[in-house]
Amino acid sequence: MRKYIASAAAAALLAGLGATAYATTGTASDSRPLAGMRILISNDDSMQAAKASNSDGLGLYELRRAMCAAGADVVVMAPWQVQSGKGTAVTNGGVVTAQRRTALPAGYENDCAGAPARGAVYGVCLSDGPCTKDSASATPADTVKLALRGGLKAKAGWTEAPDLVLTGINSGPNISASVNDSGTVGAAVAAVDQEVPALAFSSSGDESNTFFPRANYRAHAEFGARLVAGLKQRGLLTSKFALKVDYPDVSTGVPAKAPVWTRVGDGAVVYHAFEQRGNSDSFDIALGLCPVDGSGEGECAEGRKDADSTWLLDKGHVTIAPITWDRTYGTPVDARRELNRIEHFVKHEAPRP
C-alpha cells in the first residue's frame, strides 16, 4: 500500500454553489488540497441518478464533483442497480461487467474534465456482456473488490491501489442497527479489508424520509472534501478502520452542527416487519420507523449517550464513527494511537459545516 505524504494545507474555494473554505492549517495557497490523490468512489444506490426522489445515486455525483474540485483524480465503480441493504454481501460466481457511462446526469458532465481519469463512471452488473436496463447488479462490496483486484488497472490504468475509497453519499443515514445492513458501509469495509483507507458518507432525507434533497448531498460532499483534506494533511488516512460520516437534513435552512465523535447506537431507527398474507406461506416485507428521539421500547430503545442516531437525528450534528472489519468481540484495537488522534481531530480540528 502507498505511503501518504501530506501536502501543505490549503484555504480554498470549492467550485459550484457557495464558498467552501478548507479547514486546514499552514500558509500554502493551494486551492486543490487533494491534488495527487487517486480516489475510488462507490455506493449502494447505483450510478443511475434517474429517480425524482434522488434516491438512486445522485449523492455519488455530488461526492465526485466535490472531490474533483478539490484536485483528486476520481474513478467511480458502483452497482448497476440500487443495492440498498446489501451489507457486505458478495457474489461468489458468474461474470461481472464494468460498463462505462458516457452520458452523465445533467450538470455533472464536466466536473472532472481536467483530471487524468476524467472522473470515469462505471456501473457494474452481473452479465456476460453489456449491461442492460434489466441486468442484475453487482453488490456494493463486489464493486470495491473488483476495482481493487484488477478493475482499476484494466479500466483506468491504475497499477497501484487508490489512496482512498469513498462510498456514498447514501440516500438516508446509516446509523444504529442499520449499519449492519448498509451496503454503503459494507463497501467501505471491503476497502479496509484490502488495506485501503475508506470513508462511508450518508445523508438524511427531508422530513418525509422519501425525498433526498440535492442541498443535503451538496453540503455533505463539500464538508467531506474538507474533512478528507484535513485527514490527509495530518497523515490520518488509515486502513485499520473505516470512518462513517452521517449528515443531518439541512434542506430547511437550518445548518448542520459541528461534527461529533460517536459510537454506533445499540438501538434501531428502522426495523424489518413481516406480515403474513392470510394463511399462506408468503409474508409482506415492510420497514418500521422508531421514534427519532430514542424514546422507543424494545429494539427501538437507545441506550448509548454517544449514539450516532441521537446526535444526528435529535441534535442535528454531523456524526463520525469508526467502523472495523474485525467482528471478534473484545478484540483489542490494534490502532489505538490512530484512533485517538482521529478522535482528537474530529473533536478539536475538523472542519465545521
Rank of each mutant, 00 (worst) to 15 (best):
Thr159Phe: 01
Asp181Ser: 14
Ala156Lys: 05
Glu195Phe: 11
Ala191Leu: 11
Leu146Gly: 01
Leu152Asn: 08
Gly151Met: 12
Ile169Glu: 07
Val179Asp: 03
Gly129Asp: 13
Ser176Asp: 15
Leu164His: 07
Val179Tyr: 02
Lys133His: 10
Pro130Ala: 15
Asp181Glu: 14
Asn174Gln: 15
Asp181Phe: 12
Val192Arg: 03
Pro140Glu: 11
Ala187Glu: 12
Thr167Ala: 06
Val185Tyr: 04
Lys145Cys: 01
Ala200Phe: 01
Ala147Lys: 02
Lys133Trp: 08
Gly151Thr: 05
Thr167Cys: 04
Ala177Phe: 14
Ala187Tyr: 07
Ala187Trp: 09
Ser176His: 10
Ala190Ile: 06
Ser182Glu: 04
Arg149Glu: 10
Gly150Asp: 04
Lys133Thr: 14
Pro140Val: 11
Asn180Leu: 09
Ala191Met: 03
Gly150Ala: 11
Val192Ile: 15
Asp181Tyr: 13
Leu146Ser: 00
Gly168Val: 12
Ile169Pro: 04
Ala198Pro: 08
Ala147His: 06
Thr143Cys: 15
Glu160Asp: 13
Ala136Arg: 14
Ala138Thr: 11
Ala154Thr: 12
Ala200Gln: 07
Thr143Gly: 00
Leu164Glu: 04
Asp128Lys: 10
Val185Lys: 06
Val144Asp: 05
Gly183Arg: 02
Leu164Arg: 07
Thr143Val: 11
Asp128Val: 04
Gly151Ala: 09
Leu166Tyr: 00
Asp128Phe: 09
Ser182Tyr: 05
Gly186Cys: 03
Ala156Ile: 07
Gln194Ala: 15
Ala154Met: 03
Gly150Gln: 07
Val192Gly: 02
Val179Lys: 05
Pro162Ile: 05
Ala188Leu: 06
Thr139Glu: 09
Ser171His: 04
Asn170Phe: 08
Lys133Arg: 13
Ser135Gly: 08
Asn174Phe: 06
Asp142His: 00
Asn180Arg: 13
Asp163Arg: 08
Val185Leu: 06
Gln194Asn: 13
Asp181Gly: 12
Asp163His: 14
Ala161Pro: 06
Asp163Pro: 05
Trp158Cys: 01
Val179Asn: 07
Asp163Thr: 02
Trp158Gly: 01
Leu164Lys: 02
Glu160Lys: 13
Gln194Glu: 15
Lys155Gly: 05
Gly186Trp: 03
Glu160Arg: 12
Thr167Val: 06
Ala190Thr: 03
Ala177Lys: 12
Pro197Tyr: 09
Pro130Glu: 14
Ala191Ile: 09
Thr159Cys: 00
Leu126Gln: 12
